[in-house]
Structure formats: structure tokens, C-alpha cells
Nucleic acid binder design. Structure first.
Lengths: 137, 137
DNA sequence: ATTTGCACTTGCAAAACGCAAGTGCAAGAT
DNA sequence: ATCTTGCACTTGCGTTTTGCAAGTGCAAAT
């Protein structure tokens, strides 16, 4: 692992070279909600990622500077994962995916309420969340 | 093919179920630039997608209503692919990926110029591009 | 000293990917 | 009318990635 080869000079392509798969953005989503997660927290998510896939995604996300691993204050056996600024900067991407999904999928009431709230002030929400996550770094 | 199974009720997850891979968004990118592409046009892109992968991605993007296939006016042997409104609506996602990529990758002068132009009026650019692509439907 | 919890690893079968070559049909050239 | 070219895929096959289940290693609790 370590070197991710770029297929082209296109920034979209280079982005997908890092997190263009079915799982990476879900890990980032979890970290946007929770600020910090343990390995076990990710496994609890509804989509049920396999443990080996999780380990490999965490590895590339850390290698590419999108997340950081740090010690849990309570125990050496636990590990905390957090977003770096590079990861936090993916929030606008994630939000646009939410908005697109809102338009083309049937949402739970919970997701509906969340997005309704966000859309009252999209820029403001992104700014506030950015601040909130920045504090956790 | 046909049925894409949703891993969860999360709109991000459901979106990734459709186009969460290294190629689908590049096809959509090409269509945002070109309005309409033939099979051969996609193959010309810098990233060099394999022909079988292209065929399979075009199939799922069509099956999920993101693109449409239509006859080429010049010849029956050619096929034209275009974005549907559902596909056009992915433009904001694509643009945020561009912005993120701009911040974290080294860009060509061409991409730099493109993004500089876009950022002068992000909302306006998206609106204009939306209109332009809508006409092509 | 033993068990439990947490973060991974490992093994293996199944699916997806990537490359090269092949196929089928339409249109243009001879 | 026949032959060739162009275009849109399809097929075969070796390699890689995925997904599931079980296992490992270490720290902390009992």
C-alpha cells in the first residue's frame, strides 16, 4: 500500500483515485456526524462494512491525509479516528450528495428533517460544522 | 443487471450504490463538458477506461435514469449518450469535487483557468450549465 | 491468573476489473 | 454487388478486490 496512482491530471479523477468506491465516503460521513469514531463505531453503521475492508479504507484515508488515528484517552486498546482539515473540506461534497439523494430517493423522516434543517442555511450549516469539526482536530 | 440493492436508507449510501466507483463520475464529467458523447468519445478520455467496464457503467447509468441513449442523427451505427435531468442534477456534486481537488492536487493551467472562471460565480455557472445541458435533452 | 473487549489479520470463495482479441452491423469505397 | 472500414459493443481469461467467517494479539477488567 501507500502509493495511489493517478489515472490523469483531472482533479475529479485524482479524487476518485483516493475515495472513489462504495465505502470511503460512508466512513467520512460517519466522522462528520460523530467527530470521532473508534473502529467498532464504524462497524456499527447500518451498511455493515466488512472488517478487512474497513481496515484497508482507514489505511488509505490515513495515508492520503484525510483522517488521523490517535490514542483514546481512556485506553490504549482503543483507537480514535478523526477527520483532518483535508477531510473536513469534503463536507460540501457530502452535502451535495445528500441533496441529490434527497431529490431522487425516498428518505426516512430523520433524514428529511436533517436536510430540511440544513437547507434553511446551507452555507451557514457548512461553516458551523466546519468549525465544530475543526475544534476536534 | 437491473436491480441495484440499497445497503441502507441513507441517501449517501444509496447514491454510492449507483455511482460509487472509480469510473461513473468520469462518464458524467465527460457529459457535462460535451453535452453528448458517443461510446468512442468516452474511450478517448485521458483515463483510458476499458471497453467492457464502459459498457457496464453506461448500462447501470441508463438503468438508473442518469443518462439516456439515443440515435445519432448521422448514422444508425452511432449511439449518442446524454444526461437526463437526474444526471444534470449531479453537477453540484461534481463541482464540489473539482473544488476539493483544486485545493489538494496540483492542477494543469487548463483546469486552473476553468476553476478560476467557475468560482467567479459558482451559482451562476451551475445555473448556466444546467440550462445549457437541459437544452440538449 | 483468566476472561473480556477492542482492533485488527488471515483464509478462501465469489465477484469485479483490466487487457486483448473478437463479433456484428451499418455505411462508405471500389 | 462486394469489400473494407468504423463503431459499439462482447467474450475470454488472468489478476485483483470484495465479502464473509474465523482467528490473533494486546490491554484492561474480574
Amino acid at each position: 500500500m501507500a502509493d495511489i496512482k493517478k489515472r490523469s491530471g483531472c482533479p475529479v479523477s485524482s479524487s476518485l483515485d483516493i475515495w472513489g468506491d462504495k465505502w470511503s465516503l460512508l466512513i467520512i460521513r460517519d466522522l462528520m456526524y460523530a467527530k470521532q469514531c473508534t473502529y467498532g463505531d464504524f462497524l456499527k453503521s447500518e451498511e455493515k462494512i466488512a472488517t478487512n475492508i474497513l481496515a484497508s479504507r482507514l489505511e488509505t484515508l490515513e495515508a492520503t491525509g484525510i483522517i488521523t488515528r490517535l490514542e483514546h484517552p481512556d485506553s490504549k486498546a482503543k483507537v480514535l479516528y478523526k477527520l483532518t482539515q483535508k477531510g473536513i473540506d469534503m463536507l460540501p461534497i457530502l452535502m451535495e450528495i445528500y441533496f441529490w439523494g434527497e431529490k431522487y430517493f425516498v428518505l426516512s423522516d430523520q433524514h428529511k428533517a436533517f436536510l430540511k434543517d440544513v437547507k434553511k442555511d446551507k452555507e451557514g450549516f457548512i461553516k458551523r460544522t466546519n468549525e465544530k469539526l475543526k475544534k476536534a482536530i
